[in-house]
């Protein structure tokens, strides 16, 4: 869907390239997360995809079309790409409704289609249209503003979204909630998303695919599992930090290691020590500790399908972290 081919970017007045020979591909319907320290070039890549800045050399393709084509008006290109930034940039002199309707207005949608669309979008991002539509940005909390920012980017239903630390300006609790809701939305929308963050945990949680950047260069890319289980070098290891095993457990669904043959002992039932197959393995560990048991039962909806033991988890950790 989005392809970068040997892209370089050198900003005028600087001799150190901000982005060096970066190539990769984002598949349709995936969230691709760019992660790295500030100044690593991740935002620069994002802004080159919708041509807010132009690459010094190399090519960028969207759906097989070169974005730098002379015939393509960059303003028109951008109207087809949702864009969310950390500072949000809501227009302070316009109401929430007018903010969300910005791109539909630019695309000259008929007036009667815009209002219902705005209500639908506000509803989608978890805001009550009756309550917020006529408010001005300064009347909203940080979390609400972020939601409006996402709604605005989604307004014209663009197939591609670029998100630059979209949940960076809110406190951790709100951030977690926004991430969960966005992932739920994405399940239905199936957008192709480029997502920038400096937080490796957010990258692991949000990404189908992770691109790790440092000093303008692409260091490693792959699924979160690949990155966690086989960090390419010490930079990636440091970025992942100390809790690698726990992060791996967060990524693995209980269903993957459930022992389906095992009987569920009476003690587990007495202590009500159960988790669901879609819970991460980490939940199994937590439940064991909380209920003081070395075995948890696993349910698929209401059906009891097997158990996970402390030994099963140890085996998983050994397998995942292996030689790393």
């Amino acid at each position: 869907m989005i392809v970068l081919d040997k892209v370089d970017k050198v900003f005028p007045g600087s001799n150190i390239p901000a982005v060096k020979q970066v190539s990769f591909q984002v598949d349709e319907g995936n969230i691709c997360v760019f992660v790295g320290p500030s100044g690593c070039g991740k935002t620069t890549i994002l802004r080159m995809i919708n041509r807010l800045i132009e690459p010094t050399s190399g090519d960028i393709y969207i759906k097989g079309k070169k974005v730098s084509d002379k015939g393509l008006n960059p303003d028109h290109l951008r109207r087809e790409i949702g864009y969310v930034i950390q500072q949000i940039g809501l227009l302070p002199h316009r109401t929430v409704e007018q903010n969300v309707a910005l791109v539909p207005y630019l695309l000259k949608w008929p007036e009667e289609n815009i209002k219902p669309r705005v209500r639908e979008l506000l509803d989608m991002v978890g805001l009550d249209p009756d309550e917020v539509a006529q408010k001005y940005p300064f009347q909203l909390s940080g979390g609400m503003m972020q939601r409006v920012g996402v709604a605005r980017a989604l307004a014209a239903d663009p197939p591609i979204m670029l998100m630059d630390e979209p949940f960076g300006a809110v406190d951790p609790i709100v951030r977690g909630r926004l991430q969960d809701e966005f992932l739920r939305l994405q399940k239905e929308m199936k957008k192709t998303i480029c997502f920038v963050t400096h937080d490796i945990n957010e990258a692991i949680k949000m990404g189908d695919h992770i691109v790790i950047m440092n000093k303008g260069e692409l260091v490693q890319h792959g699924t979160p599992m690949e990155i966690l289980s086989e960090p390419a070098n010490s930079f990636v290891k440091d970025l992942i930090g100390t809790e690698r095993e726990i992060k791996l457990l967060e990524l693995t669904k209980s269903g993957e290691i459930v022992n389906k043959k095992a009987e569920i002992p009476e003690t587990v039932r007495q202590k009500d020590c159960f988790i669901s197959v879609i819970d991460p393995v980490q939940r199994a560990l937590e439940t064991m500790m909380k209920k003081d048991s070395d075995l948890v039962g696993v349910r698929d909806k209401d059906q009891e399908i097997g158990t996970i033991s402390w030994n099963d988890i140890k085996k998983l950790i050994n397998k995942l972290s292996g030689d790393a």
Binding site: R78, R79, Y83, G89, L91, V103, L106
Partner: peptide, 22 residues
């Protein structure tokens, strides 16, 4: 503020629209 203009550009507003609408 810069983010407001950045957001406007990112939404696909032309320089003229940014001047007159933002």
């Amino acid at each position: 503020e810069w983010p407001i203009i950045e957001a406007g550009r990112g939404m696909g507003m032309s320089p003229k629209q940014i001047l007159f609408q933002i």
